[in-house]
Design a protein around this nucleic acid. Structure first.
Lengths: 234, 234
DNA sequence: CAGTAATTGTGTCTGCTGGACACAGTAAAG
DNA sequence: CTTTACTGTGTCCAGCAGACACAATTACTG
């Protein structure tokens, strides 16, 4: 099932030499997705970048779904190896690294939704996140839930602040702002709190990432310190 | 631009009576998306459910993108009106209501990603969330960031625990578990922390929602109480 | 060396999608 | 009764994922 994601490239066989490789196909797909968005990735489009035709790709990949999965795991890459840090700093830099990845490959936000098979790189990310939380006294389930919360936050912040090439109707941040302010003037009475909230907002870019992250880490710290206070004096 | 989402249905005109309505089209689309997933929603498929042909739909909607936007805002519905509660309880029930919405219409998780124009219902959700946070001493930006964190968490938990009809390759939770345990046996040395974390996990369903939510609310409470301690004695 | 089996790449075909466009029919206003 | 505005339909196109048959290439086997 997940041979594509985990299997080693088996070289020796009988027929003609393959003209391309699975990794090469995936890289071509990544290049297209980075430049033109995930919607621009089609079998034909990928084949155009390689010395093969569209149908030849199906010798390497059972379908587009699986190809996107391979692309995604490959683009995710290996998480940067950080030296030993206290759990809070470790999780913080881990989050920032994750955010960097999502900004480098915005389409990952679209291709990694819902239930799916996990590839080696994605599992390594999880492993590194868990590493940061070992020794905190949290149970395994709590550790998993913790990195899930952090991941969710990073994902959605990235989703909101990224410009998707192609995909969405070319909406700039200004378009949204303009539409919103126009609505708030014509329908002000329906959204009083939103109006005041926006009025008292310093439009500083991307502080949402740090804000939410600090809240989550604060919440985790509360739990962890309580957990330690309960176990260590006993 | 957002006339479709915000405009009133203008009745009187000259030509023949319209055979359908925008709301009717959107409801048909919602029905299909609920039952068969977002991918099953096509112009042809919607037209099959209505007494018109595919092309007639374009008299009511400029394109599929806008139709999905209308469907999304409609499916989101009005947030349940809760009596006045302390901010923490208010935000908690708000989150649960939001989660309910996402489980009722899982495709909303797919249709409401990225930059987009906000409809009246979506804005009302935001307004209600902000209402819970008024009087906490948080700035407008902090209030917005707060509900963003909560929303992100709810979204991603829903995303993970929901079975998408159609969309993904029919992967059950068992398939993922099986694939994961198989990987962890063959590649155990690469993911030690993950292995132990999964071993010490009580497989209780969906506690991730409550866990993360409580962490976030704890973090917010820490900020809010600090904010109040700084202002009230002064 | 000849023959067979395995494997790769290609071309053709189907059914689906979103959408452009011309055209016919309908209802109200002049 | 004509004009005008509007609705619904049929036809057409480009692009998509993928099924399938077939030719070409290579290695193993007798």
């Amino acid at each position: 099932m997940s041979d594509l994601l985990w299997g080693k490239p088996s070289l020796p066989s009988r027929g003609p030499k393959p003209a391309v490789t699975l990794a090469g196909i995936a890289e071509a797909g990544i290049r297209i997705a980075d430049a033109e968005g995930l919607d621009a990735v089609s079998m034909q489009r990928i084949a155009d970048e390689l010395p093969v035709t569209k149908m030849a790709l199906y010798r390497y990949v059972p379908g587009k779904t699986e190809l996107i999965a391979v692309m995604s795991d490959l683009a995710m890459g290996d998480p940067p190896n950080r030296p030993d840090l206290p759990w809070r700093e470790a999780l913080h830099t881990w989050s920032m690294d994750l955010y960097d990845g999502f900004t480098r490959h915005p389409w990952l936000l679209l291709s990694t939704v819902g239930r799916r098979l996990l590839g080696p790189n994605e599992l390594t990310w999880i492993e590194r996140g868990l590493t940061a939380l070992t020794g905190t006294g949290l149970t395994g389930g709590e550790q998993l839930d913790s990195i899930l919360v952090v991941t969710s936050h990073v994902r959605n912040i990235a989703q909101q602040s990224t410009t998707f090439p192609g995909h969405t109707t070319g909406l700039t941040e200004e378009d949204m702002q303009e539409s919103l302010t126009q609505i708030l003037t014509t329908e002000a009475e329906r959204f009083p709190h939103l109006a005041t909230a926006l009025r008292t907002t310093a439009g500083s870019e991307n502080q949402g990432l740090e804000f939410g992250l600090q809240r989550i880490l604060d919440g985790l710290e509360l739990l962890i310190s309580g957990r330690k206070a309960a176990t260590s004096p006993h």
